[in-house]
Amino acid sequence: MLLSSVAERVYWMARYIERAENTARIILVHHNLLLDLPRHVEFGWEALVTITGNRERFHEHHEEATERNVLRFLIADHNNPNCITCSLAMARENLRTTRAIVPRSAWETLNDLHAWTRDNLNNGLSRRGRFAYLRRIIDYCQLLAGKLSGTMSHDQTYDFIRMGRNMERADMTTRVIEVRASNLLPSINEELKPFVDIQWKSVLDSLAGYQMYRRHVHVRIRGREVLRFLLHDERFPRTVHYCLGEVEQCLRGLPGNEAALRVLGRAQRMVREVDVTEILSDGLNSFVDDLQQVHTQLHEQLTATYFQPLDGQHPGLQAVSA
């Protein structure tokens, strides 16, 4: 028997851990990208705020998207519930209440990471300390995922962790595609042509997919191929296709899954049927928008079916999601 509240908490725990990891990774990649671009190119930090879906919230509190403003906002800012430290705090709260169910050593690792991230914040904000700081957050999140996968029974509870992780991954992948691919540079002019490749590489890097892309797809980086890879690849664990497949596997083993499977099927069909060449020349934005809408519906359906089997009460702990 799995309590709805426990299912919801571990689902959110997994989402928040994944969110922290993804946020750390895109900051790291962006940081590297900026170092590669010519100095006079106006390519600021705003894109990061957009990718994480926090534009409005950011501008409520900041006039300018300066490096420091954006970094603080994404790493540790109480006005941003999706910042790294807030995500880790929420993951921790959700795990704290399910300690009896999730392996003890995972709790200890998360607890550690949460405290360390907070205590070493200045390293994350400084240019010099940033790489090591973000790297460590990413590594610890992976360590956590490993502990959960390697020391916890792969039962229904674990399925909710897996669904949370993959829902968040799919979400991040579509966001990165939307912002990065549709608006690669402020305007692509002659001078910046050579840098287009670098940017596509950073798209892959943002999703930790560069190496696998080169191995399995192509040595050369081509926009169309990258997009196809991120949407369709069957073996890389952060592609939209792969993440939705993981969610499907979990759902198949759960009771009362019809409604959720229907929504999921719609998302899978959209991804399967899309013509990458076509949307790349026109309509990428509306495709991603539609995809994100279905993604949200899927989350809502999971919530309605499993977390609130009877009415609208929220047993779990969650911040406003983006």
Partner: peptide, 22 residues
């Protein structure tokens, strides 16, 4: 369980909210 995990229905019985239903 916390209070929000439990619900009393019209039959005056107490139920647990689980992922498999009540």
């Amino acid at each position: 369980v916390a209070g929000s995990d439990l619900v009393v229905l019209d039959d005056d019985c107490v139920y647990l909210r689980t992922v498999g239903g009540l």
